[in-house]
Amino acid sequence: MKDEKTTHFGYQDVPVGEKAGRVRQVFDSVANKYDLMNDLMSLGIHRLWKRQTIELSGVRKGHRVLDLAAGTGDLSARFSGLVGDDGLVVFSDINAAMLQVGRERMEDQGRVGNLHYVQADAQYLPFPDNHFDCVTIGFGLRNVTDKQLALNTIFHSVKPGGRLLVLEFSKPTHRALEKVYDLYSFTLLPKIGKLITDDEESYRYLAESIRMHPDQETLKGMMEHAGFERCDYFNLTGGVVAIHRGYKL
């Protein structure tokens, strides 16, 4: 019998068909404490990373924006204000629990007119070709089963002249920082997860998923392979996080 194809779930090899369900379980578990954990894990610096992403997006009034892996909506909220009443922000996440938490948060903030909510897998987007001025995926690409397929699919959904921005954990550029980061990720982070969410294993997976994600140059090459041009990246916090940008010309 032919062996079933596998992929990585953190440091584990699992059947390709199982990964999405396992990732879903992780985010079902952490959805209600997601914002608190983001602040604790990054000491609040994630807000600066997202602000830089917004500045690189080029989004303005009237634009259509797709925010993939939108989580609880930090990027979507900012885009909603930028595109105005004539624009559109599609708030999308593969996880129903995260989508619900994000929608409630946006409604609590009074952001209702130009936000649409779609549960979607980045690998199989239900949107027309050449539809969005900007697509973002923040801290979500590393959880996608087939990252290249997702990038290919995103390329089709971007308008000519539009751009993709990938905000994601990456590879520290200094060896000393990498050692400190590893110690934090595999020792302290799971214990914070246990204390706040009573779920140590989900945060151990998150740390492992970061290490398995392509480094800066590899991800840049994957974006170019998908068809994006003028691809570049910006290392933040010593490369702990990077913003990749590519254009559809």
Rank of each mutant, 00 (worst) to 15 (best):
T6I: 11
T6R: 03
H8T: 14
F9T: 06
Q12D: 14
P15R: 05
P15F: 06
V16R: 10
E18Y: 08
R22K: 15
V23W: 04
V23E: 06
R24T: 04
Q25S: 15
V26F: 00
S29E: 04
N32L: 12
K33P: 01
D35R: 07
M37I: 07
S42T: 12
S42W: 02
H46C: 11
R47K: 15
L48M: 09
R51F: 08
R51W: 08
L56E: 11
G58W: 06
R60S: 12
K61H: 08
R64V: 10
L68D: 07
L68S: 09
A70T: 15
G71F: 02
D74P: 09
S80V: 12
S80C: 13
G81R: 11
G81W: 04
L82W: 00
V83E: 03
D85T: 10
G87S: 12
V89G: 14
V90G: 12
A97V: 14
M98P: 05
G102I: 10
V118C: 03
D121C: 01
A122W: 01
Q123E: 15
Y124R: 15
Y124W: 10
D129G: 14
D129M: 07
V135A: 11
I137E: 04
F139D: 08
V144H: 06
K147A: 11
L149N: 13
L149I: 13
I154W: 01
S157Q: 10
S157V: 13
S157P: 04
S157I: 02
K159C: 01
G162C: 11
E168Y: 07
S170K: 00
P172R: 02
H174L: 13
L177W: 04
L177C: 06
L177P: 01
L177Q: 03
E178C: 08
E178R: 10
K179Q: 08
Y181V: 02
S185N: 05
P190C: 07
K191L: 14
Y203V: 00
Y205T: 05
E208L: 00
E208P: 03
S209D: 00
H213A: 08
E217T: 03
M222K: 11
M223Y: 11
E229P: 04
R230N: 06
C231G: 03
D232C: 02
Y233N: 03
F234H: 12
G239I: 00
V240T: 13
V241W: 00
V241F: 03
I243A: 05
Y247A: 03
L249T: 15
L249F: 10
